[in-house]
Amino acid sequence: MAVFVYTLVLLLAAFCVHVCVWKIRLPRNHSKTLMFIFLSVLAIGILGAFVWGKIWIGMEGFGEYFQIIAAYVAVMLAYIVTYSGIEVDSPSLVMVLDVDRAGPEGLTQECFIRDMNNERLVLPRINDLLKGGLAELDNGLYRLTPKGKAVARLFCFYRWLLGKKHKGG
């Protein structure tokens, strides 16, 4: 049980550091900063376990370290992918909130269309591609960078693997 509790304590510590940093000042690159905070806390935690682990947590061998790292990294990644949904507005969630706000009278399609335009839904994501180094703008044309091509190939391959033909989005 000590190994499980120790992992939870490390995750909680990382989350507290993250909230403190965010309350002081929002970082420029949220995901990278989150990754840095979580990995730093993990490094300190593993070092602590290595030095005092045998007495405090009953750490016996590589198996325990592996389990702490695997659980911690899995939860860290789960939080970071969830955070990406917090950072930008998901149209589906915005639509559900709009229908919820409309209450028992419901919402017409015109109301959806009024607020959901290219300026709100598409242009910010194109700018994200430029900022994230996935695409570049050259003579008025958007082209993928090598990083963007790698991302595109990965998702195209996975969609082929799952047998998806519809374009999605």
Binding site: F4, T7, Q67, A70, A71, A74, V75, L77, A78, V81, T82, P91, S92, L121, V122, R125, I126, D128, L129, L134, A135, Y142, R143, L144, G148, K149, V151, A152, R153, F155, C156, Y158, R159, L162, K164, K167, G168, G169
Partner: peptide
């Protein structure tokens, strides 16, 4: 906890390929 978190990340990954606007734009450019 490890299994559930990994499964959640995987679900998010395949959902990105299906619904994310950035990924759809990247695929259009590709």
């Amino acid at each position: 906890m490890t299994y559930a978190a990994l499964a959640y990340c995987y679900m998010h990954f395949i959902n990105l390929g299906e619904t994310a606007r950035r990924i759809r734009l990247v695929r259009e450019l590709h």
